[in-house]
Nucleic acid binder design. Structure first.
Lengths: 186, 186
DNA sequence: TATTATATGAACCGATCGGTACATAAATGC
DNA sequence: GCATTTATGTACCGATCGGTTCATATAATA
C-alpha cells in the first residue's frame, strides 16, 4: 500500500472540506473530485470521520509551520508576537480564505466529546504552548495570560474576517495587541 | 394560518440547530422532534434555508436583547462595555453553551454570497453599531476602533470557550478590554 | 512465466436527504 | 346545515448519504 495515494487524498480532501464544509461534502463527491475511488478511500480510512481526523492533523502541521516560520522572520520575541497579526493579514487577503478549519470543525461537530472536536481543540492547545513560550521570552510577567489574550484577538480576527467580509480585522487585532504588549517591561 | 405553530417551529428549530448543527439536522428529524408535520413546515417555509433564515433572525433579536439588557444594568457606558464580558461569562457557564450561532452558520455556509452567511453577517453588523454607540458615549477618541477591538475579544472568547472547553476566556477578554479602556480620557 | 498478494473501480446496499401529492380534518361564510 | 376554503398528516418522490461486495487489474515473488 503505497502512501502516495493516501497523502494525495488527504491533501485534496483538505481543500474541499475547507472550501465546502464537512457535512456538505459527501464521500461520493470527494471521490469524483479527487479521481480516487471510494474503495481506495475506505481502504485507507475506516470512515469519513477518520479521514477528517487525518485532514485536521495535516492542517495543524501545515498551519503552525507556516505561522511560526512567518513570525520567526520578525526577530525579537516581542516583534514576533506582533508579526503574528501581519501573517494573519496576509492570510485573510488570500482569495481562498474561509476562516479557521478548526473553528469550522468545532462548529460542525459541536459535541466536545466528539473525536473531531477534540482534535480541533488539540490544535489550539499546541498553538497556545508556542505562543506562551514567545510571551515568556518577551519578558511577560504573566506569559500565560498574555498568550491567552493574544490568541483571543487572533481567533476573533479570523472569525470577523470571514463573517464580516472584511480584511481589516488583522490590523485591528494588531493595534490592540500592541497596547497589551506595551505593558511589558522594556 | 395561525402564527403560533410557525413561531413554535422556529423556536424549537433554533434549539435543535444550535445543539446539533444545520446540515446534521434533517427536516424529518426536525418534524419528529417538534411534533409538527413536514407538510406544515413547508407550508410556512418554502425551504430549509428559509427556515434557517427565520431562526437566525429570531436568534439575533433574542441575543442582542439579552446582551444589551445585561449590559445596561451596569450604569455608565464605560462600565457597560466591561459588563459585556461578565454577561459572556454567564453564558459560557450555561450547560447548553455551544458557541455563537452566527459563527456556526458562517462555518456551515462558508460562501459569503449565501443568504444564510449574509444573514449571520447582518447580526454582527447590528451588534457593532450598538457597541460603537456605547464606545462613543464612553468618550473614546476612535469609537469605531474601540468597538471593533472589543468585539474581536468577544468573538475570540466565544470561540475559545467552545473549542477550548474552558469557561475562563471571558475573564481573559475582560482583562484585555480593561487595558484597552484604560486608554480612554478619564 | 505461473502464482500470489494487493490495489483498484463499478455497482450496489439500506437509510436518510430536502421536498411534494393527495386525501382528510377543521374552521369559515352563507 | 351546507359549501368552501384552509391547515394538516401519511405516504411517497428521486437523489444522495456513508459504507460494502465482488470481480478485475496490477505488481511482486517464485
Amino acid at each position: 500500500m503505497r502512501p502516495s495515494k493516501r497523502d494525495e487524498l488527504v491533501r485534496k480532501a483538505l481543500d474541499i472540506f475547507y472550501r465546502e464544509g464537512f457535512h456538505a461534502t459527501g464521500m461520493d463527491r470527494l471521490s469524483a473530485e479527487t479521481g480516487i475511488s471510494k474503495t481506495t478511500m475506505f481502504k485507507h480510512f475506516r470512515s469519513k470521520d477518520e479521514l477528517i481526523l487525518a485532514v485536521l492533523r495535516l492542517r495543524d502541521q501545515e498551519f503552525r509551520n507556516w505561522l511560526f516560520r512567518r513570525m520567526g522572520e520578525a526577530g525579537a520575541p516581542h516583534a514576533q508576537l506582533l508579526a503574528m497579526f501581519d501573517a494573519l493579514a496576509e492570510w485573510f487577503a488570500t482569495p481562498g480564505f474561509r476562516s479557521c478549519m478548526f473553528i469550522k470543525a468545532a462548529s460542525e461537530y459541536p459535541d466536545p466529546d466528539h473525536p473531531i472536536h477534540a482534535q480541533a481543540a488539540e490544535h489550539k492547545r499546541l498553538l497556545f504552548r508556542q505562543v506562551r513560550e514567545l510571551a515568556a521570552a518577551a519578558g511577560a510577567a504573566d506569559a500565560d495570560a498574555l498568550a491567552r489574550a493574544l490568541l483571543l484577538l487572533k481567533d476573533g480576527a479570523i472569525v470577523t474576517a470571514h463573517l464580516g467580509h472584511e480584511r481589516a480585522p488583522a490590523a485591528d487585532a494588531k493595534a490592540a495587541a500592541a497596547v497589551l504588549l506595551a505593558t511589558l517591561p522594556a
